[in-house]
Write a protein that binds this DNA or RNA. Structure first.
Lengths: 118, 118
DNA sequence: ACCCGATATGATGAATTGCTCAATCCATCA
DNA sequence: TGATGGATTGAGCAATTCATCATATCGGGT
């Protein structure tokens, strides 16, 4: 991969790997599963994507070692490659929760004050 | 921003905001500072970028509420907008630490075994 | 061996993002 | 107010990433 690049570049690449709605969706499906493993076929029905399209995103996640896969007969099972990946999603969620709340409050104030003036 | 999009899309956008080496570098400078605040001028000398270039990246970080800024006289100070942002970088670092270690070991094995055969 | 369902890869044009340069804004100080 | 240093914004082109389609691979069953 890019192991010989400066650390901030490697880190940026990791975030790049996560920077797509389909890939986030896949990761959330993987982390939601108690078994920890999900078959491509399940991802396919859950996301309603074209097979090759999903496969390309899975390939990105694999290339960045965010997930690992193993064959089980004719199907392929994916799982998060490391517990920290799950953590990243959780921390992101906490951040967004607080941030969206704050901007919501801000918006509420903005839409409320003019009303009081009327 | 994009508050009315599905959550996985919002999350992807957050990671997009982090998905660039310059922005990672800036965030690391911000989180390294015990004062918690760093002036644009300092970022400028630390990163050795063109002012407008840095400014564009700061703008991305602001737009996604990853950092906040305030004016102090003629200069502008930036800081991480939320403790979770710092956490994201730390978790990413842990993940990369483990992952790079693992691939390094793998590579070592690969380069070692052929040698033994000779 | 052949076929079939499941998954992965490769190539192409479309869309997004990043970089460079010029222009603008904003605060300070003379 | 005019000039100056610090920071931001906007426009145009280059580079990257995405979606779609066609093709290829891999296992399992016949």
């Amino acid at each position: 991969m890019d192991r010989h690049a400066p650390l901030y570049e490697i880190k940026a690449n990791l975030f790049k790997a996560l920077a797509h709605p389909v890939r986030i969706r896949v990761l959330e499906l993987l982390t939601a599963e108690p078994a920890g493993e999900v078959a491509v076929s399940e991802l396919l029905t859950a996301t309603d994507l074209e097979a090759s399209h999903l496969s390309q995103h899975l390939s990105v996640l694999r290339r960045h070692r965010v997930v690992t896969s193993r064959r089980a007969g004719s199907s392929v099972l994916y799982r998060p490659a490391h517990p920290r990946i799950v953590d990243l999603l959780l921390v992101a969620r906490e951040f967004l929760h607080d941030t969206i709340d704050a901007t919501q409050r801000q918006r509420d104030e903005l839409t409320e004050l003019p009303a009081l003036r009327a």
